[in-house]
Each structure stands twice: as C-alpha cells, then as structure tokens.
C-alpha cells in the first residue's frame, strides 16, 4: 500500500516547503523539488509500465481491446452500460485544429493511486512492482475506488459470471480493472496481450517494460523522446505514459 512507504506530508508542510527537509531539495525560498521517498526505496525492483505512441495508434483499430478482453475472459453480457471494460479506445479531436488522435486507455497503474487511498478494506492495492490490483478476496464492492479513479479505469461486476479464465478470477460484487497482464509477468513473460496484438498488427504503438531499468527499451524511449501522462496535473505518476498527445 502506498501509505506504507510514501512520506506523509501535511498540507502545511507541503505549502511551506518544510517537506523539503524530509525528501526534497529547496531551490529557492518557497520553491522546492519534491522527490517522493518511495521512488528511491523501490528503485531496486522493477516497475512495469507501458509507453503508447499515439501517432502510431491507428484510428478505428481495436486490436488491443479485443486481445485484452479475450486474454482475460471479459465478455459482453449484452448490457453496454454495465459491461466491464478493462481497456477502451478513445478518439479525440482537437477543436482548434481538427487534428485527430486515437489512443487506448486502461488503468494507468499510478504510483500514488487514489483508488488505493480510498479503499476501506485494503482490497485495492499496489504491488511492489507498481501494478495496481483489486484483491477480490477482500473487496466489498463499495465502488469508492471507481469514484476516486480519474481515468474511469475500473468496472463493477453486476452479474454472476461463469467460465472465467483460470488466471483471471472475476466475480459478481467486486471491482476489477486492467492487471497489466500480471499473470504473464509472474510467469516471466515480458509483454502484455495488448502490446502483443498491436505489434502483431504491425502498428507497434505500444511498448511494455521496466521503468526502473535504464537500459530497457521503454526507459530509453522515454529518455530520448520524452512523454506525457494523462492528467499529469494530478501528480499520480502513472506507469502508462503517452507520446503525441
């Protein structure tokens, strides 16, 4: 849980910069660089993430969405309002210029996840490798996390399910979201269903990898070409990063 290892800051500490003494660097009076203490702590292990290049993501292509939902056994029950969505394609048109983007959005695996902060049962949690999951053994279905998530990443299961995938247990009364294909990662694979599908279709818009390993492909791309995150202003430091938005 993030609260275990992030430096707790009071509002006053934050405003006055007193926190800088704890984990930061004062540049000038009132101006300080804040470095989350946990980033340093976790740096020895991996932190899995995705980089999505929206300039390569094809408008109308839904290979990643298909692949994700097939991989994890997520299927429509014929009721679009309540059907679970682990990943969706969002098409954006910039009003001023008419420029169009298409990009996949899934759980952004925030470093400071609000869904974890609000969960009353600690069911919503972040693994040491940065993957944010719901432990359905303790989820009570209150849906606080769904309201807290700024990315609308989570779905509630309203109906009894059958024929789940062995690696992806899912059930009525619990909340779920993208797992970053944690079953593959725990098996030692280093790709996700969505990335695999995107590569297979030749778009190569997505890269999966270890954000903490400076030599990984994803880290090198991030270093050389830069990136942004959706709603970067919220300072959640998502592990899913975008280029071209």
């Amino acid at each position: 849980m993030s609260s275990d290892n992030s430096a707790p800051l009071s509002r006053r500490q934050f405003i006055t910069g007193a926190a800088a003494a704890v984990a930061g660097l004062t540049i000038a009076p009132g101006v300080f660089l804040l470095k989350p203490a946990e980033a340093a702590q976790k740096a020895d292990g991996p932190r899995w993430g995705l980089l999505i290049d929206t300039s390569k993501c094809a408008d109308g292509c839904t290979a990643c969405v298909r692949a994700c939902h097939e991989e994890n056994g997520v299927r429509s029950l014929g009721r679009p309002e309540t059907d679970a969505q682990w990943i969706r394609k969002v098409n954006l048109t910039e009003r001023a210029t008419g420029h169009q983007h298409s990009l996949p959005v899934m759980c952004q695996h925030c470093e400071n996840p609000p869904c974890v902060d609000v969960c009353p049962t600690h069911a919503s949690f972040i693994r040491p490798d940065g993957i944010v999951l719901v432990d359905k053994h303790s989820c009570i279905g209150c849906r606080y996390c769904m309201m807290a998530c700024p990315y609308k990443a989570r779905s509630f299961i309203h109906e009894k399910l059958t024929d789940q995938k062995p690696h992806a247990p899912r059930g009525k009364g619990t909340v779920e979201s993208c797992t970053l294909c944690v079953h593959r990662i725990d098996r030692g694979e280093r790709t996700t269903a969505c990335v695999e599908a995107c590569n297979r279709d030749g778009h190569k818009a997505m890269t999966f990898g270890d954000l903490h390993d400076p030599d990984s492909e994803i880290s090198q791309r991030l270093r050389n070409y830069g990136s942004t995150t959706i709603r970067a202003d919220l300072r959640l430091n998502p592990a899913v990063r975008y280029q071209g938005i």
């Binding site: 969405v65 014929g78 059907d83 969002v90």
Partner: peptide, 30 residues
C-alpha cells in the same frame, strides 16, 4: 462454443459503437 460466444459478443459491441461521431468517443468492446 465459448470462444464463438466471445467473438460474437465483441463484434456486437463494436457494431453498436461504429457510428460514433462526437468529439471524444469511447469505443469499448468487452
């Protein structure tokens, strides 16, 4: 028979969203 169901359900959902023409559109296919 399960996978056939899955493909059908995906196609159904895609079709339902095919004519979206607003500024920000979400296309989702559970």
């Amino acid at each position: 028979h399960r996978n056939v169901d899955l493909h059908e359900s995906i196609e159904r959902h895609l079709a339902a969203h095919a004519d979206a023409s607003t500024n920000a559109v979400e296309v989702s296919i559970p």
